[in-house]
Design a protein around this nucleic acid. Sequence first.
DNA 1: CTGCAAATGTTATAATGTTGCAAATTTTGC
DNA 2: GCAAAATTTGCAACATTATAACATTTGCAG
Lengths: 163, 163
Amino acid sequence: MTERALPYRPHNHDACVSHALADAREICRQHNARLTPIRERVLEFIWQSHKPLGAYDILAMLGAEGHNAAPPTVYRALDFLLQYGLVHRIASLNAFIGCAHAGEHHRGAFLICRQCGTVLELATPAVSKAVEDAAAAEAFLPEEVTLEVAGVCPRCLGDNSNA
Amino acid sequence: MTERALPYRPHNHDACVSHALADAREICRQHNARLTPIRERVLEFIWQSHKPLGAYDILAMLGAEGHNAAPPTVYRALDFLLQYGLVHRIASLNAFIGCAHAGEHHRGAFLICRQCGTVLELATPAVSKAVEDAAAAEAFLPEEVTLEVAGVCPRCLGDNSNA
DNA sequence: CTGCAAATGTTATAATGTTGCAAATTTTGC
DNA sequence: GCAAAATTTGCAACATTATAACATTTGCAG
């Protein structure tokens, strides 16, 4: 799984997408899971930007290219991608974003810019540790952590010409 | 704002509710905000257990006592209660829970039991600090933090007779 | 090629949340 | 007090997000 550029900085985004797709193919191969055309296309849509995409946005994008899909098609593809850790669901936005650390067995934390919509996924051992300690202090067994920080990204803080 | 018992342990829950209501009245008084009958009733419903309540659950409860309300009534009451920090929204459940630290200016973190549904709100300086540090490391300005941990609570871990 | 399992298509519907405007109520300025 | 203004509530319609149920197609193993 290759290292990628920060979404805030200008970067060759096509490379992001192709890395993500290559990683996804590899992960699915390892698990004997089928990255079918629909699933791959949905993943590609999600990776087209660093902004999360709603299920119905994806539905519309499929529709725009002639594939007249219904909601279950999209949700099933998303379920598959979630299952193999290829995308994350952002609960506070009801939207989905490509996983920047696919296959790495991590707890994602997300920095969500309210101005430009860009989401940065962090791998945060320190935060995870703090969360686990807090849970342990209550004798609580944590299974899934939802950690989403809404705020303003450095790019929008700096210049005011937000995308 | 008075200290309260842990939801996991048996406790006089009526006391929880009356404390919460008393605190709410005081907070509203301080802010010149009107805790109208509907708002107070909604808060009371939410505090009837330590399990989060959906907006439409509240709607049904209002209906059950003869108040034939429509969704906006409930959502407006919830918006009000959220605004003054009297309830929290659990994004991963689309549900609402009474704030255990009303008026304390905190970032809530929630331990959500998948078996019994009970939610414990933590005041977690260590976790908040870790989150803020992680955001700062990316030059990100955090404004709102959603931190929800799904898992199994100590009571459900211990005995298997979950409520 | 046949039969099974997985994936997709299709229709309908459930669950959650919002908009916009009218009516009622409360507050405020006089 | 009383009228104007602001806030709150009622109400109807609608928008968005997600799932259920069942039919059909596709991929694959034997």
